[in-house]
Structures are given as structure tokens and as C-alpha cells.
């Protein structure tokens, strides 16, 4: 089982497309309403980060399985400027865009697994997974 689908994030509308895709996939896996909202919100945050900071990028959504566990993995990748100080962006309330500063630490709290790989000047790949309880 390795269903995947993806949305290129280029315009603001693609953020909407990405989260709609995420919501459908989450429903498909069998997540309840609360987890659906968590996943949709996380995707929205990730997609918006791409739009705001990298200009363009991609959101990939994968249904995954590990043993008896089913889950949904969201991979946000871009070739933007990268993140200079990862520790800093993971602090609550840190923002460079005038937003609420809830973005990445918020996504981490909404999802079960969270991984961030970034090379300054080359881009960022963030992967976040939610497991079906």
C-alpha cells in the first residue's frame, strides 16, 4: 500500500487544493473528524510556508503502513532559501512574516512524527506523519 498524490504550490489557491487533497486522503485512511482537522490544518500551514518563504514547492501526501499501523505522511519540499536557524523556527511565537508564529511547532504538535531537513540556500524538506490510532 503506497498511494501517493501531490500538489504543486505556486499560487495561493494551491494551498486550498493541497488541504482539500489532504482532507480527502485523511478521510480515505479512516481518520476521525478531529484528526482530519489536524491533518488539514498541518497541510495548510506547510503549504503556506512554502508559498510565503520559498515561492514555490510541492506538497506530497502518502498513505503509508508500518506493521499494523496505518498512517498519512505529508512531505513538503521546496528549493527555497532554506532555514538558517531550525531551532529558532521551532520556537513558539517566532515569526518573520507577521503571522501568529504558530506554524512549524504547531504542525509538530498536530502530527505524530515530524522531521525537518534544510540546507541554507538550497531548500527544505519537511515530513510529518499522523498514525491512525
Amino acid at each position: 500500500m503506497n498511494l501517493r498524490s501531490s500538489v504543486d504550490i505556486i499560487t495561493e489557491w494551491d494551498i486550498v487544493a493541497a488541504r482539500q487533497l489532504g482532507r480527502n486522503e485523511a478521510k480515505d485512511v479512516g481518520f476521525g473528524t478531529v484528526d482530519q482537522a489536524r491533518i488539514t490544518t498541518a497541510i495548510s500551514e506547510l503549504a503556506r510556508n512554502i508559498y510565503l518563504y520559498a515561492g514555490k514547492g510541492n506538497i506530497e501526501i502518502k498513505q503509508i503502513a508500518e506493521g499494523n499501523l496505518k498512517g498519512l505522511q505529508v512531505i513538503a519540499s521546496d528549493k527555497g532559501p532554506g532555514i538558517a536557524d531550525v531551532r529558532k523556527v521551532m520556537e513558539d511565537g517566532f515569526t518573520t512574516s507577521g503571522g501568529l508564529g504558530a506554524g512549524l511547532p504547531g504542525v509538530k504538535r498536530l502530527m505524530d512524527d515530524f522531521k525537518i531537513e534544510t540546507v541554507f540556500g538550497e531548500g527544505t524538506v519537511i515530513s510529518a506523519t499522523k498514525w491512525l490510532r
Partner: peptide, 14 residues
């Protein structure tokens, strides 16, 4: 505000 929305907002830290 729906329960699911309230929970996600709180978890986001909002």
C-alpha cells in the same frame, strides 16, 4: 466553533 477545530487551534498554540 466545532470541537475538532477548537482542538486543532489549541494544539497549534492559538
Amino acid at each position: 466553533i466545532q470541537p475538532a477545530v477548537a482542538i486543532t487551534l489549541i494544539e497549534l498554540g492559538i
